[in-house]
Design a protein around this nucleic acid. Structure first.
Lengths: 337, 337
DNA sequence: CCTGGTTTCTACAACGTTGTAGTCAACGTT
DNA sequence: AACGTTGACTACAACGTTGTAGAAACCAGG
């Protein structure tokens, strides 16, 4: 049923190595020999055994993508692009869900040494530089926040500038009591801290001042957490006229909570998110957001990883920035801006 | 840097095979020998080479999950559950995006013979039984619609009954001009046909009759297609008072289009979807839907595949049904039902 | 002290592939 | 005619692991 080089070789009347040469496109094979071998290959439906090839070559052709959760739209969209970009370079992607916890992320980061994959693209939430010390040199590219003094290549977007930009957008619309949803105290909350920094500095620059009472924490960044945080803000009496949510799912939850309270968006409260997920184009109202260029992020990550795998592994870590765009929509600008 | 059994063996002063025995938990190893080996393993940070192990064992420990697109929430949520269920049984999941085209799906189905994976869980859109004939016996489990006379195990939900149930729900609310969005003419549209059947038979049973003018096609089932189809229905003058969308993303698009037209949901038009995705719990209004038990689907699929891989490969194909639930929410029942 | 069984360990081969080194013939050059 | 060069191919070993077969040491029962 399942055939090996040897079977093909016998059928074609050549040596095993010649078949291997044909399969790998080696130049010096006579046309008629090549034809006989190819006939045998198709007749037997031969497919190389990748385990054997990998064992021999020390490569598997598989890279892993580790994300916190696949059903967070941002990561699903990112995964889609990574799989596509990897396929173009002949790689297969194995997807890992870390759940976002530090211990699980550490397991993933250390599990990369088990020879199944050639490299790892990793979007960590909780990992710190200390967790990345003894990696046996397996190539790795990190997505998202910088892991300080990180030993690995990195694709980032400028979270602080992006958060400042979207906060400025709210300021420019005349909002004065701008809340934030999604702050996190844990060391895991690197994105949260950077986005909070951008938010704060935009407020200070605009002369509005920074008021802790307007900042609502969210332990994780799901829709339900956004709704809960919004309800908390509304019931605490701080009466915000705008809210910057640190990601889009939080914002969708906030929209829902505002709707339930009977407040109008954006007339009473303007809402902005972060991530540029597809849902935001169809929500009611549509969602103003910062949209990182996910395709670019994915392609940069795959290319960095490819260079690492094929090239110099000891080169010092590179950090590339991917662009993002502010996409103003109804949730801040109203129906007919 | 990277160590092999041989290195561990030398350090522990035993044979390679003894180390292998320790790694694999073989019973008859003296406690002190075991301890020495384990010490050497941790000291050298030994991790088995999976390519070599796989080559030797003829197993890779990797299964593939092939879905049309990862950023369709239904598939992302499904993928999450499959990855979890597989992890519990010690398998790693490799995710493939087919794009949903027949040719690409055929490639995936035939690519399963390349020894990288032990089995495949496949959620096809376009594949027919003919495409599945020469699979070299690699275990496969299909999700979703039956591929007629399919040679493979199958996990399904009863699409016809579910579609009938949700249509009945709309009928029970007093709706009389119930439209449908998502019909497809192509052979690819198996789900579409089954859901249309259920819709039609519910209407006929209720004495409402079936009107083709109320059925809007959608080439693919994205939000934008749902919005376009809804706009088309509204402008064609058929004046529906309810609409059953064949999946949730279509329904979210339809909600958006209704909102833009100024129609109220559910007062003017009730909207129902299918898939039970997370978004529908937070949309405005929240979305009535048929929610298949995705966790169950994933677990059944992984278990079927496990049985196939470990057990009798020639056993006749099994078909298991997963349960679903009608989840009535605001888009049909209003804010305070 | 011998017998037969169990425990503990080892040597060797094999999984399917590819890199290395090599053979042999055909060719063009002196 | 002798030479090196190239083309076309092959034999062999090796990648790191585990199954098989078996050796050596130990034990219990007679």
């Amino acid at each position: 049923m399942r055939h090996r080089l040897k079977d093909v070789a016998e059928r074609a009347g050549v040596s095993v190595k010649t078949v291997s040469n044909v399969v790998n496109g080696y130049a010096h094979v006579r046309p008629d020999t090549r034809a006989r071998v190819e006939e045998a290959i198709t007749a037997l439906n031969y497919r190389p055994n990748l385990s054997a090839r990998n064992l021999r070559k020390g490569r598997t052709g598989v890279i892993a993508l580790a994300v916190p959760e696949l059903d967070i739209p941002y990561f699903a969209e990112l995964a889609r692009h990574v799989v596509s970009a990897a396929a173009e370079l002949g790689w297969t992607v194995l997807i890992d869900q870390t759940g976002g916890g530090r211990e699980q992320e550490r397991v993933v980061a250390s599990g990369i040494t088990d020879h199944l994959i050639d490299g790892l693209i990793f979007s960590p939430l909780a990992l710190t530089a200390d967790d990345l010390v003894n990696l046996d040199g397996t190539p790795m590219v990190l997505l998202g926040e910088r892991v300080d003094r990180g030993p690995a290549d990195h694709v980032v977007i400028d979270n602080v500038a992006a958060a400042r930009e979207i906060t400025n957008h709210l300021v420019g619309l005349g909002r004065r009591r701008i809340a934030a949803i999604g702050s996190q105290r844990t060391p895991e909350g690197a994105s949260a801290r950077l986005r909070l920094d951008g938010y704060r500095s935009a407020l200070v620059e605009a002369g509005l001042g920074y008021d802790e009472a307007l900042v609502a924490p969210a332990p994780v960044w799901h829709r339900a957490d956004g709704a809960a945080a919004m309800r908390h803000l509304l019931s605490s009496g701080v009466r915000p006229d705008a809210v910057f949510c640190f990601n889009d799912t939080l914002a969708l939850g906030a929209l829902r909570a505002l709707h339930e309270t009977g407040l109008r968006v954006p007339e009473d409260v303007a809402v902005a998110g972060f991530d540029g997920i597809e849902d935001g184009r169809f929500s009611v109202p549509t969602l103003t957001t910062i949209a990182p260029d996910k395709e670019r992020i994915a392609r940069l990550a795959v290319e960095l990883l490819a260079n690492r795998i094929d090239g110099d592994r000891s080169a010092s870590p590179r950090e590339l920035a991917a662009p993002y765009r502010l996409e103003p929509r109804e949730s801040t600008q109203g129906r007919h801006p």
